[in-house]
């Protein structure tokens, strides 16, 4: 007959009731139990727990349980049907707000960039008759890059009034630049001996 260890017997008695012990191992389990008080205790305790659990009464669900469940189901279906359009509206609103915000940011950004660099990003300086490069200044009152060099200041007319608005200042400088170009072209023509 096969001899069993305590761990093997304890596993069997913990998992199975005596009636369900493997037939081939039954004699070996009984032989082991006869000499092992620890395994006998294990079996007795397993029986005790099993019995205690099986004798526990079944509780009755509270009164009105089923109608309450059906009410909950109906309630949740109503909530769900209401929730979906709301979610869609909320989502489309959020998308509209996001799109509007993005457009606003782009407009403000492009305006700022325009105002910042519009003096620098002008057409390339004109080339005079005969391939002579004519220096031309496009001053931007808000940009150091576009400042009129001191030596050219004499060629320029007076600056606009100090209290003039930014747009007025811009118009003024553009007009001055145009006049300067005309004057330069006239000077070149005169140097060549007239038109």
């Amino acid at each position: 007959m096969k001899r069993l260890k305590c761990t093997q017997v304890k596993r069997i008695v913990t998992l199975q009731e005596p009636a369900a012990w493997p037939i081939g191992l039954r004699d070996a389990i009984e032989a082991h139990m006869a000499d092992c008080p620890s395994c006998r205790r294990e079996l007795a305790l397993s029986d005790l727990v099993r019995e205690a659990l099986r004798q526990t009464p079944t509780y009755r669900a509270p009164a009105g349980f089923a109608p309450s469940v059906m009410g909950k189901i109906a309630e949740r279906e109503i909530l769900r049907s209401r929730r979906w359009p709301h979610r869609l509206v909320a989502w489309s609103n959020a998308r509209a707000v996001l799109a509007a915000a993005a457009v606003a940011v782009m407009l403000v950004g492009s305006t700022l960039v325009y105002l910042r660099y519009q003096g620098d990003v002008m057409p390339s300086p004109p080339v005079g008759h005969g391939g002579v490069h004519v220096p031309t200044y496009y001053p931007n009152p808000r940009s150091e890059v576009g400042q009129v060099p001191p030596e050219a200041k004499g060629e320029m007319d007076q600056s606009p009034r100090g209290d003039a608005s930014l747009v007025e200042q811009l118009i003024f400088y553009h007009e001055q630049a145009a006049l300067h170009e005309i004057g330069t072209d006239a000077g070149i023509l005169m140097a060549r001996g007239g038109p």
Binding site: E17, P18, A19, W21, E30, M33, R40, R41, L43, A44, L45, D47, L48
Partner: peptide, 16 residues
């Protein structure tokens, strides 16, 4: 005190 109960009151299912 399960051991006390097992040794005095409870009859084990062993031998089956």
């Amino acid at each position: 005190p399960v051991d006390e109960y097992l040794s005095t009151i409870r009859q084990s299912s062993w031998p089956p």
